[in-house]
Design a protein around this nucleic acid. Sequence first.
DNA 1: TTGTCTTCCTAGGGCCCCTAGGCTAAAACT
DNA 2: AGTTTTAGCCTAGGGGCCCTAGGAAGACAA
Lengths: 197, 197
Amino acid sequence: MARAGLTAERVTIAGAELADEVGLDRVTMSQVARRLGVKDASLYSHVRNLEDLRGRIALLAADEKTVLIAEATAGRAGKDALVAFADAWREYAHRHPGRYTATQTPIQIDPELAAKAPGPRRAVELTYGMLRGYGLTEPDLTDAVRLLRSTFHGFVALEAAGGFGHERSPQQSWTRALDALHALLEHWPPSREGASS
Amino acid sequence: MARAGLTAERVTIAGAELADEVGLDRVTMSQVARRLGVKDASLYSHVRNLEDLRGRIALLAADEKTVLIAEATAGRAGKDALVAFADAWREYAHRHPGRYTATQTPIQIDPELAAKAPGPRRAVELTYGMLRGYGLTEPDLTDAVRLLRSTFHGFVALEAAGGFGHERSPQQSWTRALDALHALLEHWPPSREGASS
DNA sequence: TTGTCTTCCTAGGGCCCCTAGGCTAAAACT
DNA sequence: AGTTTTAGCCTAGGGGCCCTAGGAAGACAA
């Protein structure tokens, strides 16, 4: 019987493609096997189980997303960098919805596998680097990074969930949100404990 | 055979409890039936199928969350209202993680059922009402609402996914994010088309 | 009491996850 | 080249889940 030339990576890619087409929660071992022209039991030589496959898809996606963001922000600074970063993030989520949702699953990944994936670490560096120009210092820097990531992720998640009505295009709201975040980063409010207005 | 007194609502509640305990994606008809001391086939007299059950959980959660936010923001204005709104949102997500994720699924709900659920409509009204004090006008108002919802949702989603390291408590970042958003709403940048810095 | 409605049951088909064990193509060694 | 070892893919099968079909037995009304 001719061999199919399976490998953990090919299985992961097939799973990622399937995730983008039908949604991450519809990625099953059987479907991935069918797409590869193979019986489902054959996959278990390359991938531990479904959860492992999901983790691999998540790592793949994190790496891809990080690379795109790195390319988009290379050589840019200030608002240019912010917009490039955010647009690359959002575009990845649009282009690869299944992969993107995989990046947001509580990480339950084989540690040894995760160790050789440069994605997450690099993503953190990129975000901090992008903010360097705004002159923030810790702990404001960390807070700003978290705010940006929250907003980017929240926006594309709501967009994907159909959370925005049709009265105004998401693109316009997105552009304005980036304007607003840029303004906010330039005038980051000083830390005051008990002030309320 | 003694009757269990099932009803669509009781089934939904059991599903919601299960979702909070083990995660929404682990809510199965069989598990819900087991929890109710009933065979799984019995549920289909009250709920059309698993997708329908998920939709009902989503509506239940949306209503609960809206009520909590309404109570929290009642009689408040300005930053007080913003913080109360955001804290109620985040607390609901923490207390009911499964229900909360249900609210974020692309809505695939029986329209007739959705029509009698006041949650979504009321939630929109609440958000716009909270922002009234900042004096924004359309379309800035819509953009601001979307930015806030994105940030709130993104923050709790990243928090739930373990997306924040341990170097700084999420609570502190959350407080600072609300400070920042409040400042942003008070000085919402004017709409300028081609300006870049 | 009798009839009707509803609730819950058992039976069963189909898909999915995963393990165990076998066969054979491909690679490694002599 | 011939032989041994490795590894890829297979079939068989158990268990769980979703859902439908049809039956039995409470609850309720006449």
